[in-house]
Amino acid sequence: SIKEIEKEEIIKVLKEVNFNKKLASEILGIPLRTLYKRLKEYGI
């Protein structure tokens, strides 16, 4: 599903940037606030 793909992509990017959420949100092209929402939604 799209949610699974998105979750995997978020985890992959977070690992690449050593869990720097600000940098991860910039790489993913989403606002930091949205990233936090996704992390909560996906239980990351």
Rank of each mutant, 00 (worst) to 15 (best):
K15F: 11
G29E: 05
Y42T: 04
L28A: 01
Y42A: 06
K21Y: 15
N20A: 03
G29K: 08
I10W: 03
S1Y: 03
E6S: 14
I27F: 05
I2E: 14
R38L: 15
I2F: 11
E26A: 12
I5H: 13
I5M: 14
K22P: 06
K3D: 12
S25A: 15
R33T: 13
I30A: 01
K15Y: 11
K12C: 07
S1L: 11
P31S: 15
R33V: 11
L32S: 02
I30V: 06
L35D: 00
E16T: 10
R33N: 13
L23C: 07
E6V: 08
R38C: 10
K22M: 10
G29P: 01
R33S: 14
F19Q: 05
I11G: 03
N20E: 03
I5W: 14
K40V: 12
K22E: 07
S1Q: 12
E26G: 06
L39V: 04
K22T: 07
L28R: 00
N18P: 02
V17I: 04
N18M: 08
V13L: 07
I30M: 11
A24M: 03
A24D: 00
K22G: 05
I44P: 04
K12M: 07
Y42I: 10
I27T: 05
G29L: 04
Y42D: 04
L39N: 01
E26H: 10
N20Y: 05
K37Q: 15
I10A: 03
E4K: 10
F19G: 14
I10F: 09
E16P: 01
N20M: 04
E4V: 11
A24V: 05
L35W: 02
E26I: 14
E6L: 11
I30E: 01
K7T: 07
L39R: 01
V13C: 06
K21R: 09
K3G: 11
I2P: 14
I10N: 01
K12P: 01
E6H: 10
K37E: 15
K3C: 09
S1M: 11
K7F: 13
P31V: 04
K3P: 10
I11S: 04
R38W: 15
L14S: 01
S1C: 13
F19H: 06
I5R: 14
I11V: 09
Y42R: 03
E26Y: 10
K12T: 07
L23A: 10
I27N: 03
K40M: 12
L14G: 00
I27W: 05
L35T: 00
I10E: 01
I5F: 12
E8T: 10
A24H: 00
N20V: 04
S25G: 04
G43F: 09
L28W: 01
